[in-house]
């Protein structure tokens, strides 16, 4: 996310102190290749759809996506009918009806994705005291963004001999402090992809990270497209202004 040449040029030219303003996280997170990197970066819709499948089959048991409604999935290339069918797989509570009773009904595209737990206390008691955070914004809420997510999910390892893990904790190379309350979630063939893509652990982690980038920044594609047009327009304006300036100033710079 931060590696754009343009930004670097902007930051340098404006002589902002080069170091990132935030304190550097001590753990180095290697940068990955993503379809959404770069000036015209866009989401690989098939990848994001696969990532959604991973979320649905694995992560949604513990993590909510509170800012995502079923209708949002149309942006991933699902048709209206597919979104309707997808929503109908879920039940949500509605009401009260005319008798004052709450009732269950099939979800509609306008509904938010249902949350796995009714409240925080419940979520904590089901996870040994730890709270699985909402994932809608997680790709923007951690240093390293999708790179971090990918390496976090793949960063489980044996704890070093001199480190004692607390009960129910796992060792993770990339998690701050290296003790995480989430057990390893991703292994080879944890999901079977509907589109036939080979589902090794790296692929799964990559796909779900791309999906979480989409949930955090669903407007990224329009942003890049709008940005290109705005920059081209501004560039034209600036060049025109420059020549106009030279022409007008020529009147007094002759002598």
């Amino acid at each position: 996310m931060r590696k754009y040449i343009l930004t670097a040029a902007a930051a340098l030219a404006l002589a902002l102190p080069a170091a990132s303003f935030a304190a550097e996280a001590e753990i180095h997170i290697p940068a990955e290749k993503w379809s959404f990197n770069g000036i015209t970066g866009h989401f690989d819709k098939e990848q994001v759809q696969r990532g959604f499948q991973v979320y649905k089959e694995v992560c949604s048991a513990c993590h909510s996506l509170e800012y995502i409604s079923f209708r949002n999935f149309e942006a991933l290339g699902y048709s209206e009918a597919q979104v309707k069918a997808l929503a109908a797989e879920y039940e949500v509570e509605d009401g009260p009806d005319d008798n004052g009773d709450m009732f269950k009904r099939k979800a509609k595209p306008s509904d938010k994705l249902p949350k796995p737990y009714p409240n925080e206390k419940f979520a904590r008691s089901a996870n040994g005291g730890a709270l699985p955070p909402d994932l809608s914004l997680i790709a923007k809420a951690r240093h390293g963004g999708p790179d971090y997510l990918f390496h976090l999910l793949r960063g489980y390892d044996e704890a070093p001999a001199d480190m004692k893990l607390a009960d129910g904790m796992s060792y993770n190379k990339y998690f701050p402090g290296h003790q995480i309350a989430m057990a390893k979630q991703i292994e080879d063939d944890k999901v079977t992809y509907a589109d036939g893509t080979k589902s090794d652990a790296d692929q799964i982690a990559r796909d779900v990270s791309a999906f979480l980038m989409w949930t955090a920044e669903p407007k990224m594609e329009v942003r890049h497209a709008t940005g290109l047009r705005v920059i081209i327009f501004t560039l034209l304006f600036t060049v025109l202004a420059y020549f106009l300036k030279r022409r007008i100033w020529a009147r007094i710079e002759q002598h």
Binding site: R223, G227, A241
Partner: peptide, 23 residues
């Protein structure tokens, strides 16, 4: 006219950040 040119250059940097590194 000189300010118009200056604002244009400044906006190029501003927009680069707004559209490609907004966070």
């Amino acid at each position: 006219v000189k300010d118009a040119f200056g604002v244009g250059v400044f906006l190029l940097f501003y927009f680069a950040v707004v559209f490609w590194a907004p966070n």
